[in-house]
């Protein structure tokens, strides 16, 4: 097994305007909280709140491109959104191997996204399988 419990992986992601526009164009979620600066401010946020599920795209990148092997498939994932992410926020991503299941070639990571103010914006778990 290539993965060992406790190993850490670090990446940095930026939720750019282009990323968000691409997300809106692809999935059609134009909810004003995500697209209308004034509306978002009236709801108590500093500006447009980025779609939480953009972070799931980053998770997909981590599994698909950020690991030392490519024979991977996502089995399940859980994510909790803790704080808002705004446009152009830079996010530090850390994933830690939390469990390894050799018998079924499966690995579980715990992950956390942190903004530059060191606030956790999202965290969760993702379980992958290693294809034969």
């Amino acid at each position: 097994m290539i993965f060992k419990t406790g190993e850490k992986y670090n990446l940095t992601f930026v939720v750019s305007e282009a990323v968000q526009q691409s997300f809106v164009q692809t999935f059609g979620d134009k909810n004003p909280l995500h697209t209308d600066e004034v509306f978002a401010r009236t709801k108590g946020f500093k500006g447009k709140v980025m779609h939480g599920n953009i972070l799931n795209g980053f998770l997909s990148y981590f599994i698909g491109e950020g690991l030392p092997v490519k024979n991977v498939i996502i089995h399940s994932q859980e994510i909790q959104f803790k704080n808002p992410v705004y446009v152009e926020d830079e996010l530090d991503f850390t994933a830690t191997v939390s469990d390894v299941f050799e018998s079924v070639k499966s690995v579980e990571f715990k992950f956390v996204f942190t903004n530059t103010a060191l606030k956790t914006v999202a965290k969760g778990k993702i379980q992958i399988g290693l294809l034969a």
């Binding site: 089995h75 299941f101 018998s103 079924v104 579980e108 379980q127 399988g129």
Partner: peptide
């Protein structure tokens, strides 16, 4: 089956 084995472990 993988999820079951993981959950049992």
């Amino acid at each position: 089956h993988i999820q079951l084995v993981v959950a049992v472990e």
